[in-house]
Design a protein around this nucleic acid. Structure first.
Length: 485
DNA sequence: CGACATATCT
DNA sequence: AAGATATGTC
């Protein structure tokens, strides 16, 4: 009789869950008659059919004579008449039956499970699952003590979780590169998978990752640019900075028709991209909000995304304004108000471009008068060539590096990074709200965060007003002079 | 039927 | 949180 035939409690619509096989036959072997009797009684209480013997040789004989009768063997490891390991081997070779060893302590070699003496009925209730496993062709045999502290008979340990794909920094970098090469809107799982060229990676896995990635990008960009605040350069709470080791949202290809407040970043395309035409360098690199001994990757470098040439559009905005910012962390500054840390990127290219995160965790200073604060790493340089001399200014990358480890600690706190350097025309004010890493982000776009980039607004507006006033005054003076003459 | 996007589950 | 899986659509 096969297990399937004996299986009870199932009407064939059990949704794949194995049920207790009624009529399962267990052979119990123990040289201690008291123990054997106890075991037998317990097994019967569990509704197993039970045969017993106090000799290993007898057990082997019984098994050989009734090959199809027994489903499971429980044997003590201390059998005087035969080495139990030999019994295990023979049973395994000849009958391929699951054997549970009955031991005083946990010796598990060779057996599919072990039971500690004294045996508890709760443990015996679960042993049928070994039989089910044996009958599953794809079951990976492993030693696994049954759940001993509860009576979860319904839980089938034969349903083992598959190994989860872990998106390492390296793999994720490949993913990001592939996505950026394709363009976020055109990146579909299969193409990304092909481009990534990672062995063993499945399309479904990529799809899942891409889903989260898009969700995250969307939230970030919406948060960064969806505000009604008429800021010129507003980056709202980038909720969920946490996850991506190299979260690279391309900044490209959106038209920037207006220089008016509120019209500056009028629209984003589906690539969640924006264009900062004319902005000199393009990588904004918030440092790693991680512990110091936990670099994002081996080199600690941030890899910028590849901006496809076809994403390039021309436009003029902030012409000639040098605006590269490296948001690196000064290690000496450890914010104490829950803003987390910003690890500095150890890239010599950024040496002159350091900003300090203020102790208040609200201000990022630029001490340098260096107008072009940074140009990024080699890869950035390499790709910039694709856009020509000017083109490199036309495409910006927003490379949001990982705040992974620290994000949880950041909570609702914001790292409000402002740069108010007259020699550096960009003024950044980035709120980091890292309540969540992926989607489902909630943004607090009112109140405090609406001050984002207000200084940038103020400066540009101030200059603009000054210019207009100057023009007016000049005009008035000219007219007055003409009148007098 | 495969690929995809999205929702839901774990 | 993050990856897996289910579901509906094309």
């Amino acid at each position: 009789m096969t297990l399937q035939e004996k299986r009870g409690g199932s009407n064939g619509e059990d949704g794949g869950k194995d049920r207790f096989p009624i009529g399962m036959h267990v052979l119990a072997v123990d040289d201690d008659p008291v123990c054997l009797k106890v075991l037998e009684n317990l097994l019967r209480k569990c509704q197993y059919h039970v045969s017993t013997t106090n000799q290993a040789t007898t057990a082997l004989k019984m098994l050989r004579e009734n090959r199809n009768r027994y489903d499971l063997v429980i044997t003590s490891v201390n059998m005087p008449d035969m080495d139990v390991f030999k019994l295990l081997e023979l049973v395994g070779l000849e009958m391929d039956l699951p054997v549970i060893k009955l031991v005083m302590k946990g010796i598990t070699h060779g057996a599919c499970d072990y039971l500690l003496k004294p045996v508890r009925i709760e443990e015996l209730k679960n042993i049928w699952q070994h039989v089910v496993r044996k009958n599953k062709p794809d079951f990976k045999d492993h030693v696994n003590a049954l759940n001993q502290d509860n009576g979860h008979e319904d839980e089938d340990p034969s349903i083992q979780e598959k190994p989860r794909v872990v998106w390492s920094d390296e793999v994720h970098r490949k993913f990001v590169s592939a996505v950026n090469e394709l363009g976020l809107d055109k990146a579909v799982p299969k193409k990304v998978l092909d481009l990534m060229n990672v062995e063993g990676l499945k399309r479904e896995t990529v799809a899942s990752h891409l889903q989260k990635y898009r969700l995250y990008i969307g939230h970030s960009i919406v948060a960064a640019l969806g505000s009604k605040d008429p800021s010129y350069f507003r980056m709202g709470p980038l909720d969920g900075f946490g996850y991506f080791h190299t979260l690279t949202g391309r900044i490209s290809s959106a038209s920037l028709p207006s220089y008016q407040p509120g019209g500056m970043f009028g629209r984003l395309n589906s690539s969640a991209a924006l264009s900062l035409h004319g902005i000199s360098s393009s990588v904004i690199q918030p440092g790693h909000c991680q512990t110091l001994n936990n670099p994002i990757n081996g080199s600690g470098k941030i890899q910028p995304a590849v901006v496809p040439a076809n994403q390039k559009k021309n436009g003029t905005l902030f012409h000639g304004i040098p605006t590269s910012v490296d948001l690196n962390q000064p290690t000496q500054n450890k914010p104490t108000n829950g803003c987390g840390e910003f690890n500095r990127v150890n890239d010599p290219n950024f040496q002159d471009a350091r900003m300090a995160v203020g102790g208040s965790c609200n201000t990022l200073h630029v001490s340098s008068g260096n107008p072009l604060l940074l140009q990024s790493n080699t890869q950035q340089t390499k790709h910039s060539g694709a856009f020509g001399n000017q083109a490199s200014l036309s495409n910006s990358l927003l490379d949001l590096y990982s705040f992974k480890a620290k994000s949880a600690n950041l909570g609702d706190s914001k790292g409000d990074i402002s740069n108010v350097g007259l020699n550096n025309y960009i003024i950044l004010n980035i709120d980091y709200a890292t309540k969540q890493q992926w989607g489902d982000s909630r943004y607090d776009n009112n109140g405090n965060t609406n001050h984002s980039f207000c200084r940038a607004d103020s400066l540009v507006l101030f200059l603009f007003v000054c210019f207009m006033l100057f023009c007016c005054v000049y005009k008035i003076c000219q007219k007055t002079y003409d009148a007098w003459c």
